[in-house]
Amino acid sequence: MSLENNKQVGPAAPPPRLRVAGIEKRFGGVHALKGVDFEVARGEVMALVGDNGAGKSTLMKILAGALTSDEGDFFIDEKPVAISNPHDAGALGIQIVYQDLALCENLDVAANLSLGAEPVKSGWQFLPRILRPLDDLEMEVRAQTAIDRLQVRTLKSVRAKVGGLSGGQRQAIAIARAVGAECSVVMLDEPTAALGVAQTRQVLDVVKRLRDTDHAVVYISHNMRDIFEVSDRICILRHGANVATWKTSETTADEIVVAMTAGLDNGANNAA
């Protein structure tokens, strides 16, 4: 496979909103990430592809603060930052839809959408925040707004327990939780894996809308058609290491699949 130079995405690309460099992660004996570089700019959809076990979810969890990296540097708008827990990521405007959704089935939709950031009623300052009364009506209002924005028509009530919902509805709630929050970076880890055609279309529409509203979007999927429809760039991981980052308009699905499975023979290292 030959690579033309203009395929590579170099310094000409827009300055990234979020950039990480040299991310290392080991789980005991498993070297899951081997010095991975990654970036995503505002107004761009960066697809992240790789075989199962390539380290995509691990990278996303590190960016979301759910895992801590063993080594690596984080930059927001090229300023160094630290992401060591989910609060850090949230404060930096990073939101994630986990591959396993990370919902609490015993709680209702509204509670899940505010999980970890529950609004409390004002005027109880003498109590520590965690013991102030929850503003559950505000929670419902927020949930309703987030759900309405996503246009999940099948969801009848935000007071329904998540345990009783369908896979598609749960997926929608996980997405609503991420995009409902104040954020600039949204990462979606295989959001369409459990969805039918119509629901997948809705998710792709959400992704495009996020890009059009100047968010930085990371989109993980195994579906090449979807990736070529929504993404601007594609970052390929293999065995926990970067293979390449290409502009979507300048590559093909076949080329991506080969790079995902076999890597690049000529060792071209062209990660942006």
Partner: peptide, 11 residues
């Protein structure tokens, strides 16, 4: 109690 890992991941 519902999902400890989810609780941890939301901080």
């Amino acid at each position: 109690g519902g999902n400890a890992e989810s609780a941890r991941r939301v901080g």
